[in-house]
Write a protein that binds this DNA or RNA. Sequence first.
RNA 1: GCGUCCGUAGCUCAGCUGGAUAGAGCAACAGCCUUCUAAGCUGUGGGUCGCAGGUUCGAAUCCUGCCGGGCGUGCCA
Length: 582
Amino acid sequence: MNFCKSNQTVQNTVHLIRSDLQAAFKHAFDHVIEDDLIEIQRTSQIKFGHFQSNIAMKMAKALKQSPQSIGQRLIEPLTQHPYYKQITIAGPGFINFFMSEAYFNDSLHQMGSSPTLGIQSSHPPLNIIVDYSSPNVAKKMHVGHLRSTIIGDSIVRLLTFCGHRVIRQNHIGDWGTQFGMLIEYLIQNASDPQSADVTTAYQAAKKQFDDDPAFAERAKARVVLLQQGDAATIAIWQSLVENSERHFSEVYERLGVLLNAADIRPESYFNDQLQPLVDTLTQSEICVVDQGAKVIFLDGFKDQEDRALPMIIQKSDGGFLYATTDLAALQFRLERLKADRIIYCVDSRQQQHFDMLFAAAKKIGWIDQQQLEYALFGTVLGEDHRPFKTRSGDTVALLPLIDQAIEKAKSLIIKKHPNWAKAQLNQTAQSLAISAIKYADLSNDKIKNYLFSEEKMLAFDGNTAPYLLNAYVRIQSLFRKANCDVPTAMNGQLDLSTEVEIQLAHHLCYFPIEIEAIAKHLELHRLCHYLYQLAMLFHRFYEHHPILNDRSQESRLALAALVSRVLAQGFSILGIQTIDYM
RNA sequence: GCGUCCGUAGCUCAGCUGGAUAGAGCAACAGCCUUCUAAGCUGUGGGUCGCAGGUUCGAAUCCUGCCGGGCGUGCCA
């Protein structure tokens, strides 16, 4: 399956080199080698040229010749194409290709004339479901929801950019026994469920549940009322849900993520389907009764005593579990939403649960060609390398965390621009802080735990949002000074002459290929790394070359314009807002 | 115990399907603003890639076994 396709000069050039090598091989050794045996890769260092092939080393044994002599015979007939500037044999036998200015001019021109920077939409588009964020009603969103929300949002943007039909699913936790005690507590204290501070109420309810047996009894009875659909109970529950959803919306809006009310498909949505689902699975003997519970046994899962560990889908008391809801949600996504690919953006601690879910779906026979996968992520750690908590040991709430980052950004901006108007200061600080939080998360390999450091994420040096945004801001400033804009500058004639310009061009050309690879494996940190290198190369270019009022102004502005577009496109995929001043 | 993930410079992290002398940033030291945003650029020092085997022309990368750490492991989510 193709998740994203790049089709432009670079890729055509890779094909060109490959087929040239193939022809040369046939000519020199009367031997046909298969396409996929000839890898063409980007060189590790600029002194080795722009592309390289290791085919001479691969074939040395079979041909009983040294890689160097094989390489030598291969490159002789290769030197004709105007895209090749120089071809050399080096090191243990690499064939290094140095590309010509014509190649870079053509590549950049083609990229610049494409509205999608050379990325071709996937045909046909796939229905891709991204399950992310998934906060719980009756709890404020906290740092534990941050990664799923940010990573999921970026995955949605990435796959949308690649031309897919992406369906967001926010599987919020709005059902379960805990609502019995919460509702009972609110009734007892005559609290308004629309406006109550649910986190505090929840904690108090839990405490009373543990300490007061009479309350616990009433809470349990309330669960039954809720499940039976008692009108008064449902009304309170509904208010609680609305209360929480307003809070979720506020967080999503402040973070600038795409999730909205229409993406919410809560646990309660599947309530009616749980019993029928269990019954069907029982009838087909996929689900069996074990120790009083209804379970599905799956190969390869063991408990602590090395016995088969089943997935429990109905408790011995008749209650359902999150495995049941997830199973029903999966069925819904496959059958009703016609999912081709489903991506669960969840904490890596849930891996086993989802392994079981996927295995169950296969056992039931729901899965044909569709792909179930997850974007697993590690824990957010504090500077002490322990899970990120407040000083008192509580989970860190999201809104105060965002506010704090904004304050920090403000103080940094004031140092540089003491005279900025309040509105500009606030707006820039907000953009910078949100970008910093997102970028810090996305730039780390998501499977690893990551260290949350406000200091580092807002640093102006290194692989941070401010550093990248600064490259963008510098370009916008250039265009203001030149009285020109990006689309106009894009039409300028390129005339690349220096090593730094060529390096920048070479890196730009790789954008579509990077995006293609990133979309396949959902490696967002790789996009960050790519953009970081682009920003670094641009800063170097900017520092070493005069741009305005230089005889190369037209060419250099065209180059800057393309950098601007690629940065902006990259930021857009990461969910980062561009700014024009900082 | 079993499963799973992680282990790369003092610190935070890259290293793509195996490829050349393992790369950035921070921190340390030394330079660069009468021209486009110095929130920048240039240079120096710093690594037994957890350990040991194996596969290979070639291993941080693949395989096996250890060591260390996180997480999960039957009716919570």
